[in-house]
Design a protein around this nucleic acid. Structure first.
Length: 574
RNA sequence: GCGCUCGUAGCUCAAUGGAUAGAGCAUUUGACUACGGAUCAAAAGGUUAGGGGUUCGAGUCCCUUCGAGCGCGCCA
């Protein structure tokens, strides 16, 4: 199934080629017609002719009669193309019979590593982990859907100096009690108590420092205690991931400790390449183009003055591992915007060292922050960071309230399950539907509303369509293959919108921005509503009815597939 | 000081360099014994923070001012 705009562009291409100025047609969906071609505008100046004349030549040469019902040259030289109804109807019927709903498998399948979530061991998951986790997970699903080989990597913080104090605190509590506290998810308390002792108790701090040395030396007992911390945390993370409904599993954990054995090699190779510089006792690389506040070259500190490896060394090793061992050509880092400069420096150094080279490339899928109603970072009333589990619990509780106010769950539907689907879906959709780079304002009432660009609205729109089939007793399969008539404008508009799914998915991947898909689904639901209002389905005579049922069924399937790609569940009844 | 991101309707958000900048909410007006009424339709709402530039064409690209947020040597 070829994207419609590409189909039209391909028809115009020979006409452009004939003009011999090396330009390509620009065809895009338009509100004024099905498509608008405007490439002639750019050509006109080079040809020293008016855009309208050039457009007329292109249209005459393209012979679009079998594809378009009207081709109109408008304004300063825009070509408005309206597809023939029979062409449109045929395409919709074909998509309706296609399990992939028109979305093709990528011509080039790539191995993609998606780095996302990345919580810290023995620390609470908070709102700050929400966006990276949800956006990363949506991209994993979408890229996988179009046939890429997607490797999820959860780069948890499971190494470094804090583990000295964490291990000592675990010993102070007693292993059993400490582990129990961790598994209950009271991680804020655990970490903060350790921190407080480290800052206030000289003896404890000394033990913690000694413990770091033992950890780095691979002392068996210390490693065992470290493993306790990591395993308890990993189990806790998994509880959160399952409640959130993301694909991450314990098998996806690729913590900092994994790269530990590779760090010496990284430093050796950088030194051999002549990139390493001693600066104030630290081993650094100075990538060009980065300066500090005094306008001096900014170092990437690979090895600290005390001989320890910093996170930069780990990040370098990670790039190398993903490319050389995993064989990835596309590295996606779903990480907050503040880390942009650090990542850029790491990648520049990797390029200098020859580790990151085409076709492999790294992309920072940056995200903005989640803000409260006051426009500041979302926090609890007390001003502490908000635990992710608490946020998710509240989402489900509030969804249950909204559901109750609407009259409760339908008979035979588990209200608790439905509340979870709506509540979690609402949180995820609110996050995904805003441009990921922008900060967005978290608002329970808005995200849980059944009106507007929300998950409940889309879930409800689909459930209503399902109920048409349930009430009528018609099996969608029974009408499959019917070519809709598209006599009504609302039918035609819906058909055209349905064919846009492919382009919406492609655009989402192109920009690595799930909100593109959200916008499409919301638009589709709106066009469907207009259709549903204007065109009776079950009351229509059979020949018309079956075509409309195909449109209904296809709409429901596109909504479901689209929400599925975003990681949002779709209850059949609600 | 340098760098990054952002600034669009009252509010929350859209908009591949393409025509008259679009939705939802809120507001106002209207429809209808209903294929799911917590429905639908319509109106109103804009100097795209300000100024300059590039372009046939700028919310979008470049420069600049203002404002918000975040980074900038041994934490990750």
């Amino acid at each position: 199934m070829a994207d419609l705009a590409s189909l039209v562009a391909a028809r115009l291409q020979p006409a452009f080629d004939a003009l011999e100025v090396g330009a390509d047609p620009v065809v895009r969906p338009s509100d004024r017609a099905d498509f608008q071609a405007n490439g002639a505008l750019g050509l006109a100046k080079r040809l020293k002719r008016t855009p309208r004349d050039v457009a007329a030549d292109v249209v005459a040469a393209a012979a679009l009669d079998d594809l378009c019902s009207t081709v109109e040259i408008a304004g300063p030289g825009f070509v408005n193309l309206t597809l023939r109804d029979d062409v449109l109807a045929g395409l919709v019927a074909a998509v309706a019979c296609d399990d992939r709903l028109g979305v093709p498998v990528a011509a080039k399948s790539e191995t993609v590593v998606v780095d996302y979530s990345a919580p810290n061991v023995a620390k609470e998951m908070h709102v700050g982990h929400l966006r990276t986790t949800i956006i990363g997970d949506a991209l994993v699903r979408i890229l996988g859907h179009v046939g890429h080989t997607v490797i999820r990597e959860n780069h948890i913080g499971d190494w470094g100096t804090p583990f000295g104090m964490l291990i000592e605190h675990l010993l102070d509590l007693g292993e059993t009690a400490g582990a129990a506290e961790l598994s209950m998810g009271d991680l804020n308390g655990f970490y903060q108590q350790a921190r407080r002792k480290f800052d206030g108790d000289v003896g404890f701090a000394d033990r913690a420092r000694a413990r770091v040395v033992a950890l780095q030396a691979g002392d068996a007992e210390t490693m065992r205690l470290w493993t306790v911390l990591v395993e308890q945390s990993a189990a806790y993370f998994q509880v959160v991931y399952e409640r959130l409904g993301v694909l991450l599993t314990p098998g996806d954990l690729m913590g900092e400790s994994v790269y530990n054995p590779m760090l010496a090699g990284v430093v050796e190779d950088l030194a051999a390449a002549g990139l390493l510089v001693d600066s104030d006792g630290a081993q650094c690389v100075f990538p060009p183009g980065f300066t500090n506040r005094d306008n001096e070259p900014l170092p990437l500190i690979v090895r600290k003055g005390d001989g320890g490896y910093g996170y930069a060394a780990t990040d370098l090793a990670t790039v190398r591992d993903r490319i050389d061992r995993v064989g990835a050509t596309w590295l996606l880092y779903c990480v907050g915007a503040p880390q942009a400069q650090h990542l850029q420096m790491v990648w520049v150094v990797c390029e200098m060292a020859g580790w990151l080279r085409p076709p492999a490339r790294a992309v920072h899928v940056a995200n903005g922050s989640v803000l409260g109603a006051d426009g500041k970072l979302l926090r609890t009333r007390a001003g502490t960071s908000l635990r992710l589990v608490d946020l998710l619990d509240e989402a489900v509780a509030r969804a249950a309230e909204v559901l109750a106010a609407r009259g409760g769950a339908p008979d035979g539907v588990d209200a608790a399950v439905l509340a979870r689907q709506i509540g979690i879906g609402a949180v995820k959709y609110a996050d995904l539907s805003t441009d990921r780079l922008r900060d967005y304002q978290f608002d329970w009432d808005r995200m849980l509303s059944f009106d507007g660009n929300t998950a409940p609205y889309l879930q409800y729109a689909r459930a209503r369509i399902r109920s048409i089939f349930a009430r009528s007793g018609v099996d969608p399969l029974a009408v499959a293959g019917t070519v809709p008539t598209l006599a009504e404008p609302a039918e035609r508009a819906l058909a055209r919108e349905l064919l846009g799914f492919e382009a919406a998915v492609a655009d989402t991947i192109d920009k690595l921005s799930p909100h593109r898909l959200c916008s499409y689904l919301f638009g589709l639901a709106g066009v469907f509503t207009a259709f549903y209002e204007a065109c009776p389905v079950l009351k229509a005579e059979v020949s018309v009815r079956d075509g409309r049922l195909v449109l209904c069924d296809l709409t429901a399937r596109v909504l479901r597939t689209g929400l599925d790609l975003l990681g949002i569940e779709t209850p059949d009844r609600m």
